[in-house]
Design a protein around this nucleic acid. Sequence first.
DNA 1: TAGAGCCTGGACAACGTTGTCAAGCAGGGC
DNA 2: GCCCTGCTTGACAACGTTGTCCAGGCTCTA
Lengths: 366, 366
Amino acid sequence: MAISADTPRAAGSPAPAAAGGTHARGGPPPRYGTRPTMKDVAARAGVGLKTVSRVVNGEPGVTPDTERRVQEAITALGFRRNDSARILRKGRTASVGLVLEDLADPFYAPLNRAVEEVARSHGALLINGSSAEDPERERELALAFCARRVDGLIVIPAGGDHRYLEPEIAAGVATVFVDRPAGLIDADAVLSDSYGGAREGVAHLIAHGHRRIGFIGDRPRIHTAAERLRGYRAAMADAALPVDENWVSLGPTAPERVRAEAERMLAGPRPVTALFTGNNRVTVTALRVIARLPRSVALVGFDDLELADLLSPGVTVVAQDAARLGRTAAELLFRRLEGAGEAPRRVELPTRLIVRGSGELPPAGD
Amino acid sequence: MAISADTPRAAGSPAPAAAGGTHARGGPPPRYGTRPTMKDVAARAGVGLKTVSRVVNGEPGVTPDTERRVQEAITALGFRRNDSARILRKGRTASVGLVLEDLADPFYAPLNRAVEEVARSHGALLINGSSAEDPERERELALAFCARRVDGLIVIPAGGDHRYLEPEIAAGVATVFVDRPAGLIDADAVLSDSYGGAREGVAHLIAHGHRRIGFIGDRPRIHTAAERLRGYRAAMADAALPVDENWVSLGPTAPERVRAEAERMLAGPRPVTALFTGNNRVTVTALRVIARLPRSVALVGFDDLELADLLSPGVTVVAQDAARLGRTAAELLFRRLEGAGEAPRRVELPTRLIVRGSGELPPAGD
DNA sequence: TAGAGCCTGGACAACGTTGTCAAGCAGGGC
DNA sequence: GCCCTGCTTGACAACGTTGTCCAGGCTCTA
């Protein structure tokens, strides 16, 4: 029998699941949108409230016969425990909040999934939201999660000041920052080695003969962007190569800006012969620019891309393990929840240079 | 001043945010992990409980002076409203649950984000989880969300029987299915035109001279997989082309299986000259197989891929608008919540053939 | 058969919030 | 001076669950 989702029921046709009465026999039929409670189940089964609670939670001390009667009442009424009340009473919510930049970003999605898996293995649900790189929105989300009394919070910071979380952390909300460190507070953080990864990637380009290398990255206030730029400069310095500041561009990763900057660096009498791109979004746009050029330009990007191996030439990347970032952060969080009372830790995961050929092009000139 | 995340505080060093007393003056310092309540705020501000509630909720009828005292107490104690209690009292949770197959899948991630955006615009939070294509897990997640009393539920079905949701729907949980229809119940659904899209994609291959076309898709119990196969058969029939059953393969989208099936279809004396792939995961694996072959093989895939335009040849796809699927479903859901009491609707969104060249290869033989 | 002890079941309070309602108070009109 | 009005404020119950505690009935043993 099908049920119409929202058709209001006439008094003469009560919802089948609730037929028989939420209230004592003879009472009015339950209003649409009103759910039966343990009290209703108890009344129907002819037992006490606590007995229903025991059955629902699988607690011992209920005879099989009583249990059967309760189960029948539960099924007949379509009862489902109200976790809000349960949470209120117990204090723990078995849920974790995750604030990231963009749920849809191919870099963060696996991180999201990894956090979900760890949460699931601990019996916790995941609430999440996208900050869209807006500090105020990050704050709103994180505090909304705290109001829901999440047991723990995982944050990919958009802002640079997380003092607003101090009362929450002090109150026991286990908090772990991922991908970027917390601002102005001392807290757990799980990061990738942005500096080392960028340095290695740029060194790869240098090793293949490039001397004029452009760097296009995210906004400078973002920790990873700054670190990767630092890695770029270190690699150039290692090889005693000068850096023309026209080769460096930090800013929003919107395709228009990245395209303009890439085209600028690749134009003129002495263009760069290679690009190092600071994250997956930048890389994709840069690849589109390069694809339209008659000559070949070397590129190494931070973050792996799904089809990077199928492009020709394959795209060399500095890969982060986003899933591992998420997993590590979530595991750290649950260790905290289980009472590991050490000082905040900063975990740094290594990156991996995946050479696929795009860095190995002979330099175009110089 | 930095706060250690989990260091238990000695009695002599109370949490700064709570210093001054959660309880009446002179009482014991608050225990770690215990949060101040409105009662505590009221005591500290020297006002009644309800006045605090009014200030917290911005209700009128509080003098500026009283409000200031309450605000000070809130800040001093680090108070944050407990939404569990609020939800229990009010009955509405301002949250939406989303069950999808895999949070990390590049097809579902934008859908996830779109649902989030709509929820956000309605002031609701998003709880989500991955079913991993396991009906039991789908059920667990959906019911866990219902226990949390989400106002609405968006489900990408893994299973084929959703009667377990009948009591929930009857109790007022607005429920919308996306990508695939509900099983054995009558409910809102937002779908892509899998049949039409596949038919158009396969017709494209036929128009370019292909006569032996393979179809590799997801498990047959999945509605979209079955529909796309139906579209494939229709296109072949339209052109009066015979279908060798060796050209059709439905099953898990694990790379090993897809690779084996693609290699099988492309081997032998009379291989297929083109492949139609049933979703993004299948397409990616098939592209890898094709890339290793000496000869070129045409391919059209269901679902767009991020770098599809940069491959050579570009990959022709039947694109779905995943974000629009999510947005449409979420908007429908909120319309239901606002009381639109019509019969369940099935919305079907069009697909779009994006021609990029991979289908335009001359057939390899025949 | 009586007493002790165990097992089952239920009454009750509490979790933190919000809606209802009534009290207190100041100001103004008569 | 008194009453009425309107505003601010607070006491109280209720939301649905779980933990505590106690009562009653049963079994087992002496």
